[in-house]
Amino acid sequence: MTARRLGPTGPAVHPVGLGCMGMSWGYAESQRDDTVSVEVIRRALDAGPLLLDTADAYGSGHNETLVGRALAGRRGDAVVATKTGIVVDDLATRTLSRNGSPEHIRRSADASLRRLGVEAIDLYYLHRVDPAVPLEESWGALAELVRAGKVRRLGLSEVTREQADAAHLVHPVSAVQSELSLWTREPLDPGTGMVGWCAERGAAFVPFAPLGRGFLTGRYEGPGDFEAGDFRAANPRFRGEAFTANLRIVRAVEEVAVRHGVTAAQVALAWVLAQGDHVIPIPGTKQLRYLRDNLSAPDLTLTPADLTTLSTIPPATGNRY
């Protein structure tokens, strides 16, 4: 297992990080157990240094607090990434808005530092660009936090190449986060995709939902598998005919997994890892057994034939949101 670097001068981290959002909201919230989640995070840190991903919006601060609990006494094993720029207007309905104003960014950073219990945020993302605020103003406020020692590196989430270029002129972009998996491959587009943009600049590309929000693991049999309120219950790719059509992707992944004697999740993650040495996926899980599978995915080497088979699977049916 070869570590991967978070930006051209950033720290070396395990090739697979841990996305913590689902521990607080979005997926199967009736199964939320903070004590178990803290243990999962701590066991993940045993493979450290490991990239932990959270945001102030996840559970309206709950997820950062949870990560902070797990970090107690383990700070040196973690590279902590969090985000600002999305505001939770109503936690019950998960109604969100954007705020990229410098004032909001400064307040959010201080609040995140308190909840996480850290002296500095290792990687601070602008969660989404606020159309009401010039990106240069938002990014400039983030750069001020770096100069103040509150943040070490900056990242962008779900941006275009043009937006990333504009930010990079103000302050170096160390990482870009966006969805990438066997059913979401737009970031690989040679003309518009951010995987190539990051490679050209030595930045890390951090895929969220690299397992297709759990779909690519093969654990789900139909739309009825998701409780009311679970994000996936209303997601276009998990509904009706789209769910059935997308099972063809799972079957192709499972065929490769059988040949290698591994899980479908490990194959899906190995494919993502094969898209570049600067790619650091952050699958989420609330269970130790899945964490072990995810962290061992870098040990799987897919053959050129495997990669061709997987890369030529027809795209997913249904929009991402």
Rank of each mutant, 00 (worst) to 15 (best):
Q177P: 05
R320Y: 11
L135F: 02
L300V: 13
N246W: 00
I282G: 01
V36N: 14
G196I: 10
D230Y: 11
R239I: 14
T160W: 12
R248W: 05
R74I: 08
R152S: 08
I41Y: 01
A109F: 00
D225S: 13
A257K: 01
G196S: 11
T84M: 13
D189I: 07
V16C: 11
I86S: 00
H171V: 00
D165I: 00
V151C: 08
T35H: 15
E103Q: 14
W271I: 07
L96H: 14
H127T: 00
G7F: 04
A316G: 15
V133R: 09
S112C: 03
T65Q: 12
P315L: 05
C20P: 07
S157E: 03
A257F: 07
G149C: 09
G68N: 05
A265K: 03
G140Q: 07
N235P: 00
H127Y: 04
S181L: 08
P190N: 12
D299T: 14
T217A: 10
P223Y: 09
W139V: 04
S174Y: 03
D165E: 14
H260N: 08
E119N: 10
G26Q: 11
I121A: 01
Q177Y: 09
K83P: 14
T312A: 10
L154A: 06
L310M: 11
A12I: 04
T2V: 04
G222K: 11
V38H: 04
L182F: 04
V151L: 08
Y290E: 08
D165K: 10
T244F: 13
Y124L: 08
S296F: 01
A12P: 10
E29I: 12
L188F: 13
T35K: 15
N294Q: 13
L113W: 06
R201Y: 09
T303F: 10
T303K: 12
W25N: 10
T93P: 08
H62C: 01
L116I: 05
V88A: 09
G73H: 06
D89L: 15
S37E: 03
A305L: 13
D130G: 04
L169G: 13
R32Q: 15
D110V: 04
A175H: 04
N235M: 15
V195Q: 04
C20E: 02
L123F: 05
S112K: 04
A270W: 05
L123H: 01
L288W: 06
A44V: 05
G17M: 08
D46M: 05
V88C: 12
D110G: 05
T65V: 00
